[in-house]
Design a protein around this nucleic acid. Structure first.
Lengths: 140, 140
DNA sequence: CTGGTTGCAAAATTTTTGCACTGGT
DNA sequence: ACCAGTGCAAAAATTTTGCAACCAG
C-alpha cells in the first residue's frame, strides 16, 4: 500500500480516517464512481456522508492525488494518480483496466499537437470493447 | 450540409423540425453539451423543451447518429458521428477541436488489445491542453 | 487552540418520467 | 388514421452548499 499519509500531507490535506478509507478503497478497486466509493467506504466507516465523499474527491482531483476518468455513457470514475496509461473500458460490465505503454502513442500525439500550436498537458485514451470475462459470459 | 433527412429515416426516426434543428446546430458548432444545444436550438425553435433535447440525444446516441464525448471535469459533449479522430480539449475555454490522423495510433492500439483478448470496438482519445487562442489571451 | 474537516439537512442542478396532445408518414 | 414524437409539469437522481460540531496538527 502506498504512503497515503505522506501523500495527503504533501498536498496540505489533513489525514483523516475518511480520506484514508477513500484512498485505500480506490487502490483496492482500481476505478470507481462516486457512488461506488460511497458504497464501499460506508462498510468500514458507516457514519461517512456522501457530501464528504464529494468534497474530498473534488479536493483530491484539484490536488492531482486522484484523476477523473470520464467514460462514454456512464458516470465518471476516479483512480489514483499514476504513470501514464490507457484505459480498456468494457462496454458490457463497465469495468476499466489499465494498460501501460503510452510511449509509442505518446510520440504520435506530441507531433500532432505541435503542429497545432496546442500546449499538451494531459493525455486520455479510452479503448471501448468487451473484456475477456464478458466474452466468455456471452459465448461460454 | 449533410443529408439529415436520409440519416434519420435510415435509423427509423421520424423527421421532425426538432431533430433537424438539433443536428444542424451540432454540425455548425462541432461539440456541444445538452445545455449548449438547448440554448442554440431554442433561438430558432422557441417552443422546444429540454426534455425533447434529452430524449433525442439519448435516442440518436443509441442509433449511433451522435457520439458522446466525455470530458474530464466538464459535462459531456455530443458530436455528429464521423470518421475516427482525436479530440484536442482546451482546459481554459472548454472548446474541443477534431484532428484526423487516428491511423498511426490505431495500429498501436490494435496490437495492445489483441494481446489482452479484448475485442476493440471504439477508440476515444482526448488530449488536454491550452488552445492557440487561449494562449494569446494569457500572454498577448 | 484553531482552522480545516465532517455530517446533516436543505437547496440547487441535472436528468428522467408520465401523460395528453400533436404531427409525420 | 396510427403511432412516434413533443411539451409540460412533476418526480427522481445527482451534486452543491451552509453551518454547527468535531478533531488533527
Amino acid at each position: 500500500m502506498r504512503d497515503y499519509v505522506g501523500l495527503l500531507k504533501e498536498n496540505g490535506l489533513k489525514v483523516t480516517f475518511q480520506r484514508m478509507n477513500i484512498l485505500e478503497t480506490i487502490e483496492k478497486n482500481g476505478h470507481m464512481s462516486v457512488e461506488d466509493i460511497y458504497d464501499e467506504v460506508i462498510k468500514v466507516h458507516p457514519s461517512i456522508s456522501l457530501a464528504t465523499i464529494y468534497k474530498n474527491i473534488i479536493l483530491m482531483v484539484e490536488k492531482a492525488v486522484l484523476v477523473e476518468v470520464p467514460i462514454s455513457g456512464r458516470k465518471p470514475k476516479y483512480e489514483l494518480a499514476k504513470m501514464d496509461h490507457i484505459h480498456l473500458v468494457c462496454t458490457e460490465c463497465g469495468d476499466v483496466a489499465d494498460k501501460p505503454c503510452m510511449d509509442e502513442a505518446g510520440k504520435v500525439f506530441l507531433a500532432l499537437t505541435d503542429a497545432e500550436r496546442f500546449v499538451l498537458n494531459k493525455r486520455q485514451v479510452n479503448l471501448y470493447g468487451v473484456c475477456a470475462s464478458c466474452q466468455e459470459a456471452v459465448a461460454p
